[in-house]
Design a protein around this nucleic acid. Structure first.
Lengths: 108, 108
DNA sequence: TTATTAGTTGCAATATTGTGCAACTATGCA
DNA sequence: TGCATAGTTGCACAATATTGCAACTAATAA
């Protein structure tokens, strides 16, 4: 496995490595959503949301369709949603480890 | 789905969003590896490798076992490896889109 | 004890990301 | 035309991440 492959994969992972962008992806699990529908769920400036959407588009994770004044997003590759099953497993394993460490005393 | 969940997931994704760390994860697909075995595959300083390993450990992605002077790493949750199937699909979709755009002329 | 190998940590420099504000473009409607 | 809604972009600044060097710790062997 060469360096460019790791780099290309890292670019996709980077696009997913942000809470705001994970929220967007999560909102798209049921199908298309307009950016304007995401706005109210998002505490930050619309320009910030726009840039997060641009990052997902650039990584090839979402595609856009314009309808009048609105832009609708959808997941290009819905398998993205399966990734979170494994991520949850990592978080659960971490939580169990935290409990074990707390019960046994010294973290080590 | 609340904000903390996205934040926790993003922390795991962030740990995977780096070419060097993806290389480490990839090397662990066959089982345990010593950090010293990864060193020669890695062009950068050993302190840099050490910090990448620490990031994976902190995210709960790898665990360590010391054997004498060496530290052996393994994947806590091997489902991580499945994530790359989907990431590859994203990259393939992107590649196909690039070809289409090139053939049709204007990218829209 | 001293030396060696393996790995970690403090520090400083640089690079990359995330953000808001203001000004912009694009579309549709009165 | 003028106005409203939806979204994007330039700019500056703040926050994080990545890196190497040098100095450190940990385990083991001479």
């Amino acid at each position: 496995m060469n360096h460019e492959v790791y780099h290309a994969r890292a670019a996709v992972m980077k696009a997913l490595a942000n809470p705001a962008r994970l929220m967007i992806v999560d909102q798209l699990k049921g199908g298309e959503r307009c950016i304007c529908e995401l706005q109210p769920l998002f505490r930050k400036d619309k320009s910030t949301l726009s840039r997060h959407v641009a990052a997902l588009r650039k990584a090839g994770i979402v595609s856009e369709r314009r309808e009048g004044v609105r832009v609708y997003l959808k997941l290009v590759t819905p398998c993205i949603l399966n990734i979170f099953d494994c991520v949850s497993r990592v978080l659960e394993a971490e939580a169990r480890r935290a409990v074990r460490v707390t019960r046994k005393g010294k973290p080590r």
